[in-house]
Computed example of a mutant assay.
Amino acid sequence: MDSERKTILFVCTHNAARSQMAEAIVNHLYRDRYQAYSAGTEPTEVHPFARRVMAELGMDMGRQRSKSIEEFSSRDFDWVVTLCNHARETCPVFPAGYKRVHMGFEDPAAAEGDEEEMLESFRTVRDEIRDWIDGAILRTDE
Rank of each mutant, 00 (worst) to 15 (best):
E115Q: 02
E128Y: 10
G104I: 06
K99L: 14
R88C: 15
R126D: 14
P92M: 15
E112K: 00
D127H: 12
S121F: 04
R123G: 02
G113S: 07
D114C: 01
E116R: 00
E89T: 10
T124V: 04
G104V: 04
H102C: 13
G104W: 06
V93A: 11
V93Y: 14
M103P: 01
M118R: 02
D127T: 13
V101D: 03
P108F: 10
R123D: 12
P108S: 11
A110Y: 03
R88S: 14
T124F: 08
M118H: 04
H102L: 13
R123K: 03
T90Y: 13
E117S: 08
K99Q: 14
F105T: 09
R100L: 15
E120H: 05
H102Q: 09
R123V: 05
A96I: 10
P95C: 08
A110K: 02
D127P: 08
R88D: 15
P95R: 01
E128S: 10
V125F: 06
G113K: 00
F105A: 09
M118Q: 05
G97C: 11
R126H: 09
V125R: 01
M118W: 08
F122R: 00
C91G: 12
L119I: 10
G97P: 01
E117K: 03
E117R: 01
F94H: 05
E116W: 04
R123I: 08
Y98L: 11
A110L: 10
T124A: 06
G113N: 02
F94Q: 09
P108I: 05
G113E: 11
R100F: 15
